[in-house]
Structure formats: C-alpha cells, structure tokens
Design a protein around this nucleic acid. Structure first.
Lengths: 348, 348
DNA sequence: TGTTAGCACTCTCGGCCATTGAGTGCTAAT
DNA sequence: ATTAGCACTCAATGGCCGAGAGTGCTAACA
C-alpha cells in the first residue's frame, strides 16, 4: 500500500520533531509547530492509521507517538532528501569546516584517520569509528638493513602504498656494513614486488636455506621483518566520542549507558559491524543491526577508496533518532576527502 | 595533639570500611565488623572526638561518619603500611600479573607506555594516565637519506635513546644516490651527537648556507627533518579507564559524571597535574589538588627513570576513598618495571 | 574514671496516594 | 472529510508517613 502524500508529510514532521526533541510527539504539538494546514483531530486520525501501518508506536496510551525503525527506513530512503535541500547552507558550512580541518592536518596517513574519528565525533556529537586503510594488494617496494652501532641494526621497509616502517634490532655480534648491504640486496631481490601478504615465514626460511652464507643473519632479521610486515597489513580501529552518549536523553539511565559502553569496548564487534556494511554510504537502522546491543541504535557507514578499490571505512553510531540527513551528508563528504587525500599520498 | 592509639585504630577501621563500602560507617557496624574490643557506645564517643579534630564528618545527623581529606592524609602517611603488610599475598599476586603482562608485550617503547595505561586502569578499576618518556637530553645518533624511487626519498633518524623514526619525502626532481649519500654524511657529520632539542631551524639553515652545492636538497629535507625531531621530543599522554567511573557509587549522578569526564577530556590539565607532582610515589588527596574538579578525587603518581633521571610519569585518578595501599603499591611496582624496561632498551 | 546499656531524638529513604497535565479516541456537528 | 468537544488514560510530580539506621545523652556499673 502506497502512503498518500499527507501521511508522508505528517510522518516526516513527526520524525523531524522526534529527532530534535527525543520526546514522543502529540497531535497538538504537531499542529501548532508545523504548518500542515489541518487540525490536531485530523492529525490524530492519520497518526492512528500510521500506527496501524507500523510506522509509529506509543510508549503508553496517553503519550505522543514515536517513529518506528520502519519509519526511519522510509525517511532515509525517501523523505530525507527534502530537509537536506533546505539545509544546503548548513551542509556547505559543514563541508567548509571539514575541508579546513583537513588542510591544517597534513601529517601521516594513520594520523589523518585517527583525526578523522575525532573530527566526526565532534561534528556529529555522536560516536564515531574509523578504520585505517588496508592495502591488501600492497607490494613491498624497498627494504634496507643499516648498521647503527656495534650491536644495533636499523631495519626499514617501504611499501608501494607509500608507508615506511622501521625497527631497531639488537644483536650480540657485530655485522659489517658490507654483509648487511649484501643481505639487504638479496632480500630486496627476492622480495621486492611481492604482495606483503605473501611474504611468509616459510618464504623467508626458503631464502635462508638457499643462501647459506648469511643464513644466521637472515634468521635474526626474520622475526622483526615479519612483524613489521604484519603491522603494515593490520588495520587500526579508532573509536571516538563515547562520552557523547551522556548528552543523549536515551542514555540518561546509567545502567543502559554502562552496558552500551561495555559493548563498544569490544573492538572486534565494531569492526564486524563496519566490515559487514555495504560499500558507499550505508545506513543500518535499529533492529536491522545484528548485535542486540545495537538495536536501539543506527549506524551510518561510508567507504573511502584508492584506485577505485575500497580500502577503508568510517562509521557513525547514534540513537535511531539521529539526524540522518546531516550525518549521511557528513559521512559522504568526509570519505570523499579521505579518498582525495589517499590519492594525493600515492600520486605525488 | 597526638592521637592515642585507640583513636588511630578506630580511624583506620573507619577508613578501611569506607574505602570498601562507600557508605558512611556507624558505630554499631564498626563494633560488629572489627574486633576492636570496645562497645559501640565507646566508639561513638571516640568518633565524636575524631570529628571535632577534623578527621571525620557526617553527611547528616543520623548518618554514619565519613573520613575527611585530613584522615586520608594520616592514613597514607602513617596507617597504610599495616594493611599492606597483611595483604602481602595480594601484593605478590599483583606483581606477578604486572610482570607477566609486561613480558608478553615486548614491542615498541611507546606501545609499552600506552599499554601500561590500559593495564593500570584494568588493575585498579580506576582512571589511569601515563606520560611517555621525554628524552630531553637525548642526542642524535644517525641520519640517512635513501632514494626510494624517482620522486620519493626516505629519511630515517635514530636517537641515542634508541628511537628510530622515518618519513617519506616526495620530490619533483630526481636526486642521485651519491648526492643523497653525501648530504646524509654531511648532516650526520654536523648534527650527530647534538642534543635533539638543539637542532633548530637556524642551525640547519646555517649548514645550508655553508654548503652551497646541496643547499636546495638540504632546504627540501629541512622541514621533514625538523618535524621528525620535534616528534621525537614530544610527550604523549595516554588516558585510560574513564568509563570505570560508572562503577563508582560517587558518580551515579550522571551530571557529576559528565562534568568530570569533561574535565578529563582537557588533556593539558591532566598533564599539568602530573608535571606538578613530586618525584617518586606521590599522593595528592582531595582538596590538596589545585583543580576544583579534582577536589573530590585523589591522584597517585609515580615516576620512572633512565640513568637516574626522571623521564616519565604515571598516574592513577580515583575518588578520595580509593584503596591507597593497593594503588600505591601497584604504581610503585609498575614504575619499577618501566625503569627496568627502559634500561634494557638502552643497554642492549 | 572510663566504659557501657538504654533511650529519646533526628534524618533519610522508600512506598503510597492524590493531583496534574499531556495526549488520545470517540462522537456529533459542520 | 474535517473538526470541536469531551471523557478517559496514564506517567510524572509532590506530599505524607512509617521504617530503619545512627546519634548523643544519661545513668549505672566496674
């Protein structure tokens, strides 16, 4: 059954009102606050219909109505565009803020991702999550062993995605510059251009067995090398703004807040949520979430890319009555900026 | 006026009881729970005296008594040792946990400090803070420019404190291995052994002006070099366990919790608190704190060292009724382990 | 003289009840 | 089809009361 236009307008007003007040909205308030051109009694009848259709529900008989997940879904899919158009000015302002914040923060890529989480939580006043890029396909570009003093060696590794990592190895015996250079060359020759994920313990052992002369040196370097590579592949999760929930009336109950925070502390579940979301901007509303602890919440995710491939995600978590129009537009714009940033890191 | 022994014993019992229950303690409870060998009526008289002396106060006439800051101060200075002796077993257990946790986490130094914060908040169930070491005196040990491809150069810097950092420079023109090597040698020659703090923009400009041949290359490297050095000197603050306060009855009032969290979010103030604390283990109780928002709280700080110099601090923040004996012993032991760890990083 | 039992008094806390007010659904009039 | 009017519902608020925990004081006791 298709909802007639008036019902849609009423539903939209209810949703918008509830998003900003968090209070069940009644027919009188609605008639007064929004110029719908109909009386509260008519609104009451329509609301009754909307409730029957599953878009609204009442916490108790003598209270106003609250939008259901189904209503939010409709809002996100069809009704949201309109207020977004009206708020074009606000959207522009947000875009400007985001742009300026990113300009000021050039630094490292990882830092940018961690900062993005903070920026998101600041702008949305909600909980934000960012995943640092995973360069699954990234290849090893360069590797070097450098003697630092009689018992420390610096190991540097650079990937094609432009990430450089280093570590200092402590040794008991002294190694000559020449032997370190030879091993560097050797490893470079054998490993350069390989996908980082394909450089395994076994492969290095293979090299070691092949080249008897330096086998002990290679053996010593191996664990540090593997650990750096693993570090390069690993994805970091940045979670910010947890304390924002205390400004939300839905978490005025301290027990509820505690439980939710406990849930958020389990990083794996959050990662799961992000990984399972669709590409582009995706909105998951209330019970659409698989985790029980998230079923009062909505999650807006968005993806950023490199060379057309999704390499990372961001997410915003808030109550189901979050300001979808606003959040979606922020998420969309932030990922666009991140995609840009990534391209710049790689192009230059 | 010197407190007689019986008063001290009663005060000690009150403090210990209040630390574990967070409820005002009454004379009857005290007489029943602790074998003081005197009746509740006698205890009442003594409590009355203790109140007059400023060690106790009542939230209202018909409630039990609560220790004052003055009482906690006395407890920390004189009374705390005894329960600590009795709980030797628990202390040993904690030491074992700490030791094992640290053994499993070798990794980077910075990671160890960040992990320490998590460990502390986990063990104390309170808020913990750690400052990463500041090697003010640390000297530059090694510097190297390595060509990666036609338009990227890897810059690696190692400090004598054993920290290595790198960054990738993007260039428009291609530089030969030889010229990069020469500039590396040159910079090494000029800068090696200098305190990192003394390597300024001006000094590098001086070098640039001196060596005309490579002045453009040096100019290009300069900002990245300075930014890495700055990064090496900067101190990171790790704050963990904020959400632990929701398990404390004193923060069951959501407004109070919100306010306190807001205070903790201002990192500079926390840094201030740590910086102003004394060396070794230091306890600051309630109103002894300069920040108003901390005056319901106590802060236990401890310092870790390198070569006998204090290079970093840790802190634990909790309500004034925190378990001082336990917290102090944990703080003390953790900093001992950190000092050990630092020595190992440097010695090896 | 120090200790203790007994008792009257104080004050918070939790439950109970009536009142208030926002909001609904229904009916009848427009 | 819309709306004004009205009876009804129910959460929230505030006042009231009794229970319980704790105190201070007094008088008796060792």
């Amino acid at each position: 059954m298709e909802l007639e236009d008036r019902k849609l307008r009423i539903l939209q007003a209810i949703i918008q009102d509830f998003i900003s007040t968090a209070e069940p909205v009644g027919s009188r308030t609605l008639a007064k606050k929004y110029n719908l051109g109909i009386s509260s009694a008519t609104i009451r009848n329509e609301m009754s219909d909307l409730e029957e259709l599953g878009y609204l529900h009442q916490p108790h008989t003598s209270a106003g109505r609250i939008p259901s997940d189904k209503a939010y879904r409709l809002y996100v899919d069809r009704l949201m565009a309109e207020p977004l158009q009206q708020n074009q000015k606000l959207v522009q302002k947000h875009k400007k803020i985001i742009q300026e914040e990113f300009l000021q923060r050039v630094g490292e890529l990882e830092e940018a991702i961690s900062y993005t989480a903070r920026l998101l939580s600041k702008m949305t006043k909600l909980i934000s999550v960012t995943l640092s890029p995973q360069f699954k396909q990234s290849k090893l570009k360069y590797l070097q062993l450098i003697p630092i003093d009689s018992n420390s060696i610096l190991l540097v590794i650079v990937s094609e995605s432009g990430v450089a990592k280093n570590t200092i190895l402590r040794t008991t015996e002294t190694h000559s510059l020449e032997s370190l250079q030879m091993v560097s060359n050797l490893l470079n020759h054998k490993l350069k251009g390989l996908c980082i994920a394909d450089i395994t313990k076994e492969r290095i052992r293979g090299i070691k067995d092949e080249i008897k002369t330096f086998s002990s040196l290679i053996e010593m370097v191996s664990p540090a090398l593997l650990s750096i590579l693993e570090d390069m592949l690993s994805v970091n999760l940045y979670l910010e703004g947890i304390t924002n929930i205390f400004n939300l009336p839905e978490y005025h109950d301290i027990e509820k807040a505690k439980e939710f925070i406990g849930f958020l502390d389990q990083r794996e579940q959050i990662t799961d949520l992000l990984v399972h979301s669709k590409d582009g901007v995706d909105v998951t509303i209330g019970k659409e979430n698989s985790f029980e602890n998230m079923q009062d919440c909505s999650l807006v995710t968005a993806t950023y890319q490199l060379n057309g491939c999704v390499v990372g995600k961001i997410g915003i978590i808030g109550p189901t009555r979050m300001d979808y129009a606003n959040i979606v537009s922020i998420a969309d714009y932030v990922t666009k900026i991140l995609t840009d940033l990534l391209r710049k890191y790689n192009d230059k």
